[in-house]
Design a protein around this nucleic acid. Structure first.
Lengths: 218, 218
DNA sequence: GACCGGTTATTCGCAGACGAGTATACGCAC
DNA sequence: GTGCGTATACTCGTCTGCGAATAACCGGTC
């Protein structure tokens, strides 16, 4: 599943969806996507944009229309989508909506090494992050209000998704904070002990050498 | 916030956390992380592993201990963590636990171009993905059961996080499916019309040209 | 004792991502 | 009409992620 795309960068998806409406030149694609409130998807990386467009053209998903210039500005190349490009857009969307693949958010990585920090400090850090998540929630809500008067809900659905996920994350964080600060997390004493003395339980060290049946391993 | 790391790849974090226990050579780091059930974090990319380790060494976060060989096997280089490396590990963990930064999961990208597919097919696709999410949930639960007898909960906390997020995602997807298939999603008729005829509402086209105040823009 | 498949352990090379730099045009002040 | 700040539009070079190739060793089998 999740076949190898000729141009794998997700920015290519956004580009295709913009050019699907009408032909345009690269810079215009960026501003168009902004106009649709999609700039959150891709915090436009200029370097990538041009590489991606060139690759799409190379693989026949976009075609060069004209390479005119206005005045003595740097030459602008206008692209249009090809039938193949349209097919790729639809196929890719199908894949993204139907295939669940595990992802690895940065916060998850932080959790997986949480033990290197003491429990008391962890509580403080999590509280900070919780505040950040709440800020993001407010921003998303604001974006929804800003755009919904003119953009149909269908085109803002990913912001609703953001809101749902942010809410879930906040709830989970609150309960973890509660468990640690309330002292109900099992193993809290060992954690504190490990952190203060630097001692490592023998079993954990031993585990490092054992090779056991793995999770997620096909 | 979120300062530039000397070695930015998250695999470096995992490597540091492994080497923090005892000195080892690269291949051993991979198996150690497996032993702790952390292989989900990084589906070990062999190419990256060696690049990352070399970079960590270059920046003084790891130090070469010995470069012995056994028999006529390829030479093995053993690394130990430096004080600087230990500091980086802790500092990085602090950052990851305290800073919330928006991320862009692939599914979100799919949602943002959902309109290129018709509503009926979208329902089918979402149902497929929902099944996938449920499968992942089962796997995570199994992993938790497999490891919890010997690994303290503290070290499996990221799996609990996975479970919470998967549950939220499933719930959200179910409600979206319900709205579309139940016909209660506003704009459903236009969507269907657009999909069948290829027509684009004039306002949307117009929006592409306007440049309005942006969401998420600092 | 020759062969074979699996595990251990690492190197290589290329494609791709992206920060930073470049250059022109335009609007506005004075 | 001259100067300057800002928007437009793109290019270049670097760094790095990672797939695929490589190769030695081990243990079994006929």
């Amino acid at each position: 599943m999740a076949k190898r795309r000729r141009v794998a960068n997700l920015m290519a998806l956004a580009v295709l969806s913009a050019v699907a409406f009408r032909q345009m030149h690269p810079y215009e694609m960026a501003t168009t996507l902004r106009g649709w409130g999609k700039e959150r998807d891709l915090q436009i990386k200029w370097g990538s944009l041009y590489t991606v467009v060139r690759n799409l053209a190379k693989h026949g998903l976009l075609a060069e229309v004209e390479s005119g210039r206005e005045g003595r500005r740097p030459e602008r190349t206008v692209y249009r989508i090809t039938d193949e490009g349209r097919a790729e857009l639809v196929d890719w969307a199908r894949e993204l909506l139907s295939v669940a693949e595990p992802e690895f958010p940065r916060f998850r990585a932080g959790l997986s090494v949480m033990a290197v920090i003491g429990p008391d400090e962890v509580v403080t850090l999590l509280q900070q992050r919780l505040a950040g998540v709440e800020r993001e929630t407010a921003e998303a809500r604001a974006a929804l209000e800003l755009h919904s008067p003119r953009v149909p809900r269908l085109f803002l659905i990913e912001i609703e998704y953001d809101l749902a996920m942010l809410a879930a994350e906040a709830a989970w964080m609150r309960s973890l904070i509660e468990e640690i600060s309330g002292g109900t997390l099992p193993g809290l004493a060992e954690w504190r002990h490990h952190h203060e003395t630097g001692e490592i339980s023998a079993e954990l060290v031993e585990l490092a050498d054992s090779s056991i049946e793995q999770y997620g391993k096909k």
